[in-house]
Measured scan of single mutants.
Amino acid sequence: MSIQHFRVALIPFFAAFCLPVFAHPETLVKVKDAEDQLGARVGYIELDLNSGKILESFRPEERFPMMSTFKVLLCGAVLSRVDAGQEQLGRRIHYSQNDLVEYSPVTEKHLTDGMTVRELCSAAITMSDNTAANLLLTTIGGPKELTAFLHNMGDHVTRLDRWEPELNEAIPNDERDTTMPAAMATTLRKLLTGELLTLASRQQLIDWMEADKVAGPLLRSALPAGWFIADKSGAGERGSRGIIAALGPDGKPSRIVVIYTTGSQATMDERNRQIAEIGASLIKHW
């Protein structure tokens, strides 16, 4: 067993022997301040990774656009098919120029040779490549099948209805392509620590998230040296922004954090800054 596999296998073990965790309302004060600064709703939840206990939450059962955070769930569904012998990570998928959609920095470079399922998941999570996500959605049967996968996990809230990039439209009061912070946090925890996926697939999923290259201005910008984070960000229309993450000190994750916002007129930089400040408060009061 590799060191990384050992780390993920012992996530519940280490967490069980940690000192009790206590909620700190100071972080919620910052979440509410972010709402004021952005002029928009902000949803927040913080779960203990081992027990699933909610440590703090704000608007945990209000719907927010998922945006690209759905790509972690998508690759979880792909990995479940791999575990069941219905898919192979090494299978190569070929596609054409007509398949390319807006923001496809990886797939646009491989029109000639195609990409493997493993490479597509890596591109979808680490670079948020939209064509990679659409190609992977095709392998599982489309958005409705991802929703069905989530329902089978016990998540009857999260739903995907459309493809990239239309799913980022974020129309107010439109339930399409949305989740709730509580539902997303619980589902992410199941994917990373539950028995739904094999140990190898859980490790692969967290490795992809740990290698995320496009979430630097968010929670990662607030992390002290030595902290662990595996995350996936999302951005959408109407001032929408979000991030889902597993993080913790001492090089291992111990909490799940989900943050979503929508309806702001603020710039992307300002949305990023507010999420980073929430992260800084979380870490300060850990």
Rank of each mutant, 00 (worst) to 15 (best):
259 I>E: 01
194 G>C: 10
126 T>K: 07
249 P>Y: 06
141 G>W: 02
284 K>H: 14
253 P>Y: 10
167 L>D: 00
286 W>I: 04
157 V>C: 10
179 T>K: 02
125 I>L: 10
225 A>L: 11
282 L>D: 03
113 D>K: 13
67 M>I: 07
102 E>H: 13
204 Q>K: 09
166 E>S: 13
147 T>F: 00
52 G>D: 07
93 I>E: 04
111 L>A: 11
122 S>R: 12
165 P>D: 07
240 S>W: 00
45 I>F: 15
163 W>C: 09
34 A>K: 01
276 A>F: 11
234 G>F: 00
137 L>R: 01
145 E>V: 11
96 S>C: 09
204 Q>S: 10
259 I>R: 00
285 H>S: 11
165 P>N: 08
67 M>F: 05
65 P>N: 04
27 T>Q: 05
79 L>Q: 03
213 K>M: 14
75 C>A: 10
45 I>E: 03
28 L>Q: 10
199 L>D: 12
101 V>A: 08
260 Y>G: 03
91 R>G: 05
126 T>H: 06
146 L>G: 02
220 R>N: 03
132 A>G: 04
239 G>W: 03
117 V>W: 00
74 L>Y: 00
186 T>E: 15
217 P>Q: 12
49 L>R: 06
240 S>M: 04
26 E>F: 11
129 D>L: 00
226 G>L: 05
128 S>R: 02
100 L>Q: 06
228 F>Y: 15
27 T>R: 04
169 E>Q: 12
268 M>Y: 08
230 A>P: 00
219 L>G: 01
120 L>R: 00
49 L>A: 09
235 A>L: 06
230 A>G: 12
68 S>G: 03
172 P>W: 10
186 T>H: 15
110 H>R: 13
278 I>D: 02
209 M>L: 08
47 L>I: 15
255 R>S: 01
30 K>L: 09
197 L>W: 02
274 Q>A: 14
251 G>I: 08
219 L>R: 03
171 I>E: 15
114 G>T: 04
168 N>A: 07
200 A>G: 15
277 E>T: 10
207 D>Q: 11
200 A>P: 14
93 I>D: 04
164 E>H: 00
192 L>Q: 04
125 I>E: 00
185 A>G: 12
205 L>R: 01
154 G>E: 11
61 E>K: 14
210 E>S: 08
219 L>N: 01
188 L>D: 02
205 L>T: 02
48 D>A: 08
91 R>N: 09
223 L>A: 09
137 L>Y: 09
279 G>H: 01
259 I>P: 01
222 A>L: 07
115 M>V: 06
175 E>N: 11
243 I>A: 04
109 K>N: 15
196 L>D: 14
193 T>W: 13
263 G>L: 07
118 R>K: 13
223 L>E: 02
112 T>H: 14
245 A>W: 05
273 R>Y: 10
258 V>L: 06
124 A>V: 08
28 L>R: 12
220 R>W: 02
26 E>N: 14
167 L>V: 14
189 R>E: 09
159 R>I: 06
277 E>V: 10
250 D>M: 14
202 R>N: 07
87 E>V: 10
26 E>L: 11
264 S>A: 10
148 A>F: 12
127 M>Q: 11
160 L>K: 03
44 Y>H: 03
72 V>L: 06
240 S>D: 04
31 V>K: 01
155 D>H: 01
96 S>I: 12
269 D>E: 12
34 A>G: 07
191 L>Q: 00
76 G>W: 05
125 I>M: 10
278 I>G: 00
122 S>F: 12
84 A>Y: 10
45 I>V: 15
71 K>E: 01
243 I>T: 05
118 R>T: 13
67 M>E: 03
198 T>V: 08
244 I>R: 02
57 S>I: 07
164 E>P: 00
108 E>K: 13
164 E>A: 00
31 V>M: 07
209 M>C: 06
77 A>F: 11
44 Y>D: 03
61 E>D: 14
131 T>W: 04
112 T>P: 14
128 S>W: 03
134 N>F: 01
286 W>G: 02
60 P>M: 15
121 C>V: 02
235 A>G: 10
261 T>M: 15
208 W>E: 04
99 D>V: 09
99 D>Y: 07
201 S>H: 09
162 R>D: 07
40 A>Y: 04
265 Q>Y: 14
158 T>E: 01
258 V>E: 04
